[in-house]
Design a protein around this nucleic acid. Structure first.
Length: 271
DNA sequence: AAAAGCCCCTGGATGC
DNA sequence: TGCATCCAGGGGCTTT
């Protein structure tokens, strides 16, 4: 589920509501991808300072230390003053005086990790290799093009890898490549400067638009208030195999790249 | 060093 | 209705 837009929509949904709150208790359900790395009891009494996002990670800064949250493939967060009894897929509750933040994740590919600071080994391991943030000023076109030139793999794979630019997952990679008119299998290193510029702009536009629409809800995703996103309704290629291209009418094709589905228009994305 | 596969896990859709 | 198979928004780890 959650690519950058969904994580950002999630962040915006509870950041202002939880900042300043004192942690009253922590409840752990089934194990997630990694152990919490700190005794939940040790978090009690700390206060939430800020909620940030880096790529697809949420960073919850406390007055001492921070929590790194990842939603994996099927995770979503809820936040409310009062939440019902936890269900089988509710694996983490951060109970604060201003409300409870709850992670629901059926497939349990998500993660909650505590670190003392961003230089801690686990923080470096998870965040250290991440590429540029696509929204905001740090997404530099020169650096983007330079990053592509180093990679001979298919451009779709490079977008997904997250070491050049972060946050672009399987839906938005296909969407951005369609917007830029680039064939997903094209070697990243072979992308010309003008086309890199188009892709750079497309990534920004697609992600920003998706944030505006509340993200994409295919199955599990909803925001912290349980509301769905609507970007999936304006997908141009993702999930539309066999349906006519919205621009030229040619049937959209589906293929596999690295065990993941890629969608593209063979006419609009000739190379 | 880069690239390609494998795997973690659960549930929904589809097919026989 | 029951059971098997395939597929799904991610990404770390191991192997080439």
């Amino acid at each position: 589920m959650p690519e950058l837009p969904e994580v950002e929509v999630t962040r915006r949904g509870f950041a202002d509501r939880i900042v300043g709150a004192r942690i009253e208790s922590v409840r752990i359900g089934k194990p997630l991808r990694w152990a919490l790395m700190v005794l939940p009891q040790a978090l009690v009494g700390r206060r939430v300072r800020e909620v940030r996002r880096r790529g697809k990670y949420l960073l919850i800064d406390l007055d001492r230390g921070l929590l790194l949250l990842h939603l994996g493939m099927s995770g979503s967060l809820r936040f409310d003053i009062h939440l019902p009894e936890p269900g089988v897929h509710d694996h983490f509750d951060l109970v604060t005086e201003l409300g409870t933040l709850r992670l629901n994740d059926p497939r349990r590919f998500g993660a909650v990790v505590y670190v003392d600071d961003e230089e801690a080994p686990w923080a470096l391991k998870l965040l250290g290799g991440l590429g540029m943030e696509p929204l905001g000023d740090a997404f530099d076109l020169d650096a983007f093009h330079a990053g592509l030139k180093k990679r001979r793999t298919a451009i779709k794979q490079v977008l997904l890898a997250g070491d050049v630019v972060v946050g672009v997952g399987n839906i938005y990679a296909s969407e951005a490549l369609f917007m830029a008119g680039i064939r997903p299998t094209l070697s990243a290193a072979r992308i010309s400067r003008p086309r890199a510029a188009k892709l750079h702009a497309a990534v920004r536009e697609i992600l920003a638009r998706a944030v505006e629409k509340g993200g994409s809800t295919l199955r599990d995703f909803s925001n912290v208030d349980g509301q769905n996103g609507y970007f999936q309704l304006e997908a141009t290629v993702y999930g539309r195999a066999g349906e006519p291209c919205r621009v030229c009418g040619t049937p959209i094709r589906q293929m596999k790249q690295g065990q993941r589905s890629t969608y593209y228009c063979p006419h609009c994305q000739k190379s």
